[in-house]
Amino acid sequence: MAIEAQRMQAEESSKSTSPASGDAVSPSVEGSAVAVKSESEAVVRLDDVSVYYGSFRAVRDVTMPINKNEITAMIGPSGCGKSTVLRSINRMNDLIPTARVEGLVSYMGIDLYGEDVDPVEVRRRIGMVFQKPNPFPKSIRDNITYGPRIAGIAKNEWDDLVEQSLRSAAIWDEVKDRLDDSALGLSGGQQQRLCIARAVATKPDVLLMDEPCSALDPIATGRIEDLMQELKNDYSIMIVTHNMQQAARVSDRCGFFTTELDSQSDRRTGQLVEFDETEKIFSNPSDERTENYVTGRFG
C-alpha cells in the first residue's frame, strides 16, 4: 500500500521534476497497454549516475533508461562498470560496505535512493539473476517458494506459483517430477533457469541479469536467450554481457561502456559511451570507440 501511494505521489511530482527526455516518458498510468517500441516508457531511469567504491569512482555519468517490455543490454570490456551499474539499480551495492551511488536512479519516477525507500522492497520489484547459478542448497520447490514465502504470499498459492514460475523459465518439464529433490543436482544450465524462475516467482517488474550465461555452455546459453525473448512480454529486462553477439541477438537497446582515464583519480573509470537501439549500435554507431569495439578492433 505504501509503495502504491508513493508511486501516485511520484507520478504527480515527476511531471515537473523528471528530466525532459525524448525517448522515454516517466511513469504512466497503471494498466496502459504495451507501448509501441519506439515510444516505450522507461520503468527505470539512470540520470548522471556515478558509483564509487570508497574514494574511487568506478563508473561515471551514466544516463540510460530500462524500457518497459524491452531487453536493454550493457556491453563493454571487463572492468568498465557494467555490473556495478546493474547492482545500483536494485541497491545490491548497499551490501558492499564502501559503495556509494551519486546521481538519480529512479523506478516509476521514485528516487531509489530516497530517504524512505526500503532496499528490501526495491529488490522485490527489481529481481536479479547472477553470473554464476546460485540456487540454495534446498529442494527445487523451496528455491522457488523462498521469495513468495518472505513476501508473505499465502501458502495455498505456492503450488501454482511454483508451476507458473518454472514454466515461465522453461524448466518445468525437466523438473516437474522431482520438485522435492535438491536443486544442486541440476546441471549448470538448469540451475540458472531455476534461478530465473526463482527471481520471477516474486513477481518483479524488472529483471536484472548479470552475465547470466557466462558460466554456461552454448546450448544452455541458447535456451536462456530464447527464454529472455519470452520473458520480455511480462518483464523489463536489463542484461550485462561480455558477449557482443549475445547483446546483438537478444537486446532491443544497448549501452556501450568503456574505461577512460579519470582526471579526478588518475585511475581508469568506466563510462557510458553510447546508448541507442541495438541495431544502430551494431550497424551504425555514432562513436568511434563503439565502432572499434563492435567490429572487434578492441576489447
Binding site: L95, R124, G127, N134, F136, Y146, G147
Partner: peptide, 14 residues
Amino acid sequence: PRALRMASAGLGAR
C-alpha cells in the same frame, strides 16, 4: 558461500 546471501538479498530478504 557469499553467493547464497546475495541470492537471498536479491529476492528481497532482510
